[in-house]
Computed example of a mutant assay.
Amino acid sequence: MIIEKIVGHIDELDANLVAKTHKEKVFLESSDLLKRIQRVKTDHGREIGIRLRDARELVAGDVLYMDEKNIILIEVLPDDVIIIEPRTLNEMGTIAHQLGNRHLPAQFEDDKMIVQYDYLVEELLVELGLPFARENRKVKKAFRHIGHSHG
């Protein structure tokens, strides 16, 4: 089976329909969400080729295939991340500046900054006295490096 477009998102489907269907999941690393072309396997052993026509990233919960009885969807494996919870605007500015200089991609949820685990970042946070926690967490989108040069 080759998937060329995303059918929809699991959260946007009728809850009654979703409850009645058999669900197969494709477990991906968050970095694989950026790939438009890849070969994957569902948790039931079905091989699927993904070759998206549209230039879009995959997102946790994307439905690759759906009929009356079956849904195949994307599930993201947990990432080793650091959750930073600055207490003040000054702390947020300080850590954002420090991590920005390292070109480290970040995601934001509520008042939390989420970055992929890096022991140097952990050391920096301890040195600055900023509150943080390390955990395995499923992210909805991939950590995307933004192309940039200091030319």
Score class of each variant (00 low, 15 high):
3 I>H: 05
3 I>S: 09
3 I>D: 10
4 E>T: 15
5 K>C: 06
5 K>N: 10
5 K>E: 15
5 K>G: 02
6 I>T: 06
7 V>N: 08
7 V>R: 10
11 D>Y: 09
14 D>I: 03
15 A>W: 00
15 A>K: 15
16 N>V: 13
18 V>N: 01
18 V>E: 04
19 A>W: 02
19 A>N: 03
21 T>G: 03
21 T>F: 00
21 T>R: 15
22 H>Q: 13
24 E>Q: 14
24 E>A: 14
24 E>P: 03
25 K>L: 10
26 V>K: 05
27 F>T: 09
29 E>K: 15
29 E>S: 10
30 S>F: 06
31 S>R: 13
34 L>F: 03
36 R>H: 07
37 I>G: 05
37 I>P: 08
38 Q>T: 03
38 Q>C: 06
39 R>E: 14
39 R>T: 13
40 V>T: 04
42 T>A: 00
42 T>E: 01
42 T>S: 06
42 T>N: 06
43 D>H: 09
45 G>I: 09
47 E>S: 14
48 I>A: 07
48 I>R: 10
49 G>F: 05
50 I>Q: 06
50 I>H: 05
51 R>N: 14
53 R>Y: 12
54 D>H: 05
55 A>R: 12
55 A>V: 08
56 R>Y: 02
56 R>W: 01
59 V>K: 12
62 D>S: 03
62 D>I: 04
62 D>A: 03
64 L>Q: 00
64 L>I: 03
65 Y>F: 15
66 M>K: 14
67 D>K: 07
67 D>S: 08
68 E>H: 14
76 V>S: 02
77 L>G: 01
77 L>K: 14
77 L>Y: 03
79 D>I: 00
79 D>A: 09
83 I>K: 11
83 I>L: 12
87 R>K: 10
88 T>E: 10
88 T>N: 01
91 E>I: 02
91 E>Y: 03
92 M>D: 08
93 G>R: 08
95 I>R: 02
97 H>M: 13
98 Q>T: 02
98 Q>D: 11
98 Q>A: 15
100 G>M: 11
101 N>G: 11
102 R>K: 13
103 H>R: 14
105 P>V: 05
107 Q>I: 00
108 F>P: 01
113 M>A: 06
113 M>S: 11
116 Q>V: 04
116 Q>R: 15
117 Y>I: 04
119 Y>G: 04
120 L>W: 02
121 V>H: 08
124 L>M: 15
125 L>I: 05
127 E>T: 06
129 G>W: 08
130 L>Y: 01
130 L>A: 04
130 L>K: 07
131 P>V: 11
134 R>Q: 09
136 N>R: 15
136 N>P: 08
136 N>A: 10
137 R>D: 00
137 R>A: 04
138 K>C: 06
138 K>A: 10
140 K>M: 08
141 K>G: 04
141 K>Q: 12
141 K>A: 06
142 A>M: 06
144 R>V: 15
146 I>C: 01
146 I>L: 13
147 G>Y: 08
147 G>W: 07
148 H>D: 12
150 H>W: 07
150 H>K: 04
151 G>L: 08
